[in-house]
């Protein structure tokens, strides 16, 4: 993606090039595409056995994209920058492992299965640029007890994202932030489905579409709290900005709560840039376009402020600044 250059020394880079075998290892952490792993281990099945990935997690035959494996207790000293080439991917973080991942540039369909074992952490940032054809991603995450997952998804243009997360073990945490820009006649959809299947878990969703032109957006956020998931905390907010009168945003919050001792809330807003704030900035000598850009930047930054890796956060913010808002 143009403008997204991070100094080599700040990250580990992995390009899931589908045309050749790729395999990388840093400090025990493995990243490879199917061909790369097969070349190294003999077969995908052998590799999955080596990682002790339970057959229920994924079907070895289905992985044709990239695979990231963080062994027990390992953590990367730098963020991993993964350039996806589409397909079915797997991210598996064993107990106590930690990974900081930035995934970008998948101009096609892409599905990622994520499994976090006990006390594993994954901080994932996704950057997507939809073209004429919609970029479509599906993340299916399964989290064991005390695992932590955060997803920051920054998307531009025609994008269709689905995130399914199951908080399967006690005290698991899932945080998701979605920042979506659309212009002209583009359409972006975000669907989130979070299941609290164990007690004392927390989930927190915040999505913001910023729409210009005649673009449209869709947000569907479902939270299911199963009967045994007592002491659940689950929040959802969809807060959107329509920059032009012909833009349209559909929001569907769905809460299904079967436990009785829970804290859950949802909220949805659709609004415009604060005209009073625009005037305030202009009254100090800042041009109208610049004033609107400053306010948009602030609205965008609100969603990105807790990106774990400073290097990744810095680059995403720089990327936003060079985007042309309308």
């Amino acid at each position: 993606m143009n403008g997204l250059s991070i100094p080599e020394q700040d990250v580990y880079r992995f390009v899931a090039d589908a045309t050749k075998a790729v395999y990388e290892e840093w400090n025990g952490i493995v990243a490879g595409n199917r061909a790369g792993i097969v070349e190294k281990f003999g077969s995908m099945e052998i590799f999955l056995r080596h990682c002790r990935i339970h057959a229920s997690v994924t079907d070895a035959a289905s992985i044709n994209g990239f695979m990231l494996y963080v062994p027990c207790g390992k953590h990367s000293d730098k963020p991993l920058l993964i350039r996806s080439s589409g397909g079915n991917n797997l991210i598996y973080i064993a107990s106590g492992g930690v990974a900081d991942v930035l995934v970008y540039d998948s101009n096609e369909e892409d599905a990622t299965t994520i499994r976090l074992d006990e006390a594993a952490s994954l901080h994932m940032v996704r950057l997507q640029q939809g073209g004429q054809k919609s970029v479509s991603t599906h993340i299916k995450a399964w989290q064991a007890s005390s695992s932590r997952m955060s997803v920051h998804c920054v998307t531009f243009g025609n994008v269709r994202n689905t995130l399914d997360a199951t908080l399967a073990g006690k005290d698991a945490e899932h945080v998701v932030r979605g920042l979506t820009f659309t212009k002209e006649a583009e359409h972006a959809a975000n669907h989130v489905d979070i299941t609290h299947a164990s007690p004392e878990c927390s989930s927190n969703q915040l999505f913001r579409h910023i729409l210009s032109g005649t673009s449209t957006g869709d947000f569907t956020g479902r939270i299911v709290v199963s009967a045994n998931a007592q002491k659940t905390t689950a929040y959802q907010r969809s807060s959107n900005i329509l920059l032009h009168p012909e833009t349209k945003m559909n929001i569907t919050p769905q809460l299904e709560i079967y436990a009785d001792d829970v804290k859950c809330s949802h909220g949805a807003t659709v609004g415009q840039l604060d005209a009073e704030a625009v005037f305030y900035l202009r009254s100090r000598g800042i041009g109208e376009a610049e004033a609107r850009k400053i306010l948009l930047q602030a609205l965008a930054e609100e969603l990105l402020k807790d990106i774990a890796s400073p290097a990744v956060k810095q680059r995403i913010l720089q990327h936003l600044q060079i985007m042309k808002y309308k």
């Binding site: 009073e276 305030y280 900035l281 100090r284 400053i294 306010l295 930047q297 602030a298 609205l299 609100e302």
Partner: peptide
């Protein structure tokens, strides 16, 4: 006007 997310320093500098 309150403008969350825009720092006073940055605002004044611009």
């Amino acid at each position: 006007v309150e403008i969350p997310g825009v720092s006073m320093a940055n605002f004044m500098k611009i």
